[in-house]
Nucleic acid binder design. Structure first.
Lengths: 235, 235
DNA sequence: TGCAAAATGTGCGATATATCAATTTTTAAA
DNA sequence: TTTAAAAATTGATATATCGCACATTTTGCA
């Protein structure tokens, strides 16, 4: 029953969809009519799991972690959202409370769009509907991928994978061809990979010794992505 | 930064949304105009990861597993879909290939609806649009929950949780008040929990000795769901 | 620039889980 | 009902990862 690697889907496609790009001007204007902008300092919470949503967020600059807390308060980061991504719309669409929390992992500039405006545009814009359906099903596929990776891969492989993904997200800050620096705390990285800080450090040291990457304080500089791809995809 | 259990979301809400229920008759008729029905024997594959979608599937009777294979062919079950659920629409909405495979875990009767009909209704039906957006964001929340459970819970806790979920799915086959029998191979169960068959057996034995459940051959009869909830939610 | 607090890194024993091999039970087909 | 194949179970051992305690470095602020 187990066919080996038939039609493998491209696991390295992590591009995030921009929901708002190319929206008809009319829709875009209505959507942004009452937006308010706010700067979130590093670590500041944007919304909390279980709270009722009052609107959606649009990241104009910075990076945001979406995470869940377990009973002991330990967080697991589900996703790192980059600038130009939309945030917190799942709760409104599912007519429920936030399924996860969000906080900035670096100083971020974020616009808030009231729920009413979002729903108003949703009711009149087939383009936004279609865009959201596409984004949501893409997100679903990415999440399903993360889930099975968790089930099937070890810490080393998961970390390699996350470094590849993060590299894409941090790329925008650096000139093409220049080495990309990932600036993320070991704790956040560990919570993303689903392990402890110590284990992340251990594997990073190993990668450093293999010449795959360098570290400068907290910064991680990726030298050899291909090597990471081989590790992440190995098993 | 870690606030303990503030606004905990209800982790035990696993009800699946019925996308097609209460759809306007006009839309429903168009959707089902060219449907073809087929019986899938236990274990038969419905679609494969990476293939291009030709339509969507509606489970009229039976149960279906959605899964991903790793390089060695070991499968990880992402989700068990029950009757009356829609299948395979993510790929069409994301304009991509199937992100996972689907196969029946018991004899199932499944209708196939061609892509064209689905898209035609999607273009004209605000209700279907809204319904799909809601379903997708709900699914996303459930999946995100599974992901963080994987990161935070051990095999024992994950198995307890899956037994609770499966009990809900198998409930429909039994009279209210009657003990629910879960009829699933240990292999499928292990692939759902993300571990090996042997480990599932060991934990099941433990549960059996605690009086939480009984087994009759392959069947698992849950006696004490509350105990399972305590275990699954413990950490 | 200097200092305290926070973050990072290291060693090691404890533990959960994976993995292999062998046995027993169940299932389904003749 | 018999029987062979498939599935489930048990036991033993290997391995990855966890999590504590502690040392070191980095960071941000006065």
């Amino acid at each position: 029953m187990s066919i080996k690697g038939l039609f493998p889907i491209d696991k390295w496609d992590f591009k995030s969809e921009s929901v708002l790009a190319d929206l008809p001007a009319e829709d875009f204007d209505l959507l942004t009519a009452h937006q308010t902008e706010q700067v979130y300092k590093k670590g500041e919470i944007i919304f909390r799991e279980g709270a009722y949503p009052a609107g959606i967020f649009y990241i104009k600059a910075g990076k945001v972690k979406k995470y869940k807390l377990d009973k002991e308060g330990k967080e697991h980061i589900i996703y790192v959202a980059n600038k130009e991504e939309l945030l917190g719309y799942h709760a409104i669409l599912s007519e429920d409370r936030y399924p996860d929390s969000a906080a900035s992992i670096e100083e971020s500039r974020i616009a808030f769009i009231p729920k009413e405006d979002f729903l108003a545009v949703l009711n009149q814009s087939p383009v936004l509907n279609r865009r959201l359906l596409k984004t949501l099903s893409h997100e679903f596929a990415v999440l399903a991928n993360s889930l099975s990776m968790f089930a099937q891969k070890n810490v080393r492989e998961r970390l390699a994978l996350q470094l590849i993904v993060l590299r894409e997200k941090y790329k925008v800050n650096f000139k093409p061809g220049m080495p990309v620096e990932i600036n993320m705390s070991r704790d956040d990285l560990a919570n993303l990979v689903g392990t402890g800080r110590e284990n992340v450090v251990r594997v990073l040291t190993e990668f450093k010794e293999s010449g795959i990457l360098q570290t400068q304080g907290r910064k991680i500089i990726i030298n050899d992505v291909n090597q990471l791809i081989i590790i992440a995809d190995y098993k």
